[in-house]
């Protein structure tokens, strides 16, 4: 029963025993394209998206799950990519802000509603807000203003665009119900 790694510096040169590895080959889909990468298991999905795949629409605001700026969808559900080890994306379908507009560039209804309601200022939290807003509607959590506020509270906006964000998400939710 071999110990696969050690905490001393020789760990780097000692290959771990199966099933463990310190470089993990991972395959997943990002915005409908296949991606294959060799990952250090320390890498977050956020850093892989931004620094390796150059999908920089997803933002880093805290790196600890406190702000929601890095929100993406994994298999259609919203997560914070900063606390998602990228190795856990194996076999999943990841959607980022770059992947929600239509093939011809037409905005997703939630994106359009953010424009129409001026639900943004500096724009830095906006990709995360949009991803959260889309999921919020899909989940059925945008039924009234109070519910939408609660289920959008995982996305901080320091500019204070909250009223517009709620209005935008609610407008789309109302339309999809109708």
């Amino acid at each position: 029963m071999a110990t696969p790694v050690r905490t001393d510096e020789t760990a780097r040169t000692t290959a771990p025993s199966p099933p463990f590895s310190t470089t993990v080959h991972v395959g997943f889909r990002v915005n409908d394209e296949d991606v294959e990468l060799d990952l250090d298991p320390r890498e977050s999905l956020l850093d892989v998206l931004r620094e390796r795949l150059e999908l920089t629409g997803t933002k880093k605001g805290c790196d600890h799950g406190h702000c929601g700026a890095c929100t993406v969808h994994v298999d259609g559900r919203r997560v914070v990519s900063c606390l998602t080890p990228a190795v856990q994306a194996q076999g999943t379908a990841v959607t980022t802000i770059e992947g929600v507009a239509g093939p011809g560039g037409e905005l997703h209804p939630v994106q359009q509603a953010f424009v129409d309601h001026d639900a943004l200022q500096c724009g830095y939290c906006t990709p995360g807000q949009v991803m959260s807003g889309i999921a919020c509607i899909d989940e059925g959590h945008a039924g009234d203003d109070a519910q939408a506020r609660e289920y959008l509270s995982g996305n901080l906006c320091r500019c204070g665009a909250y009223p517009g964000i709620v209005a935008a998400v609610r407008a789309v939710a109302d339309r999809s119900e109708g």
């Binding site: 790694v5 099933p19 463990f20 590895s21 310190t22 250090d40 298991p41 320390r42 194996q90």
Partner: peptide
């Protein structure tokens, strides 16, 4: 740094943890 394993079942996961 850490080593990572994603076993396919609970028994394998327990074995892996013990091994580690």
């Amino acid at each position: 740094p850490f080593a990572y394993a994603a076993p396919a079942s609970v028994p394998e996961a327990l074995d892996a943890l013990v091994a580690a």
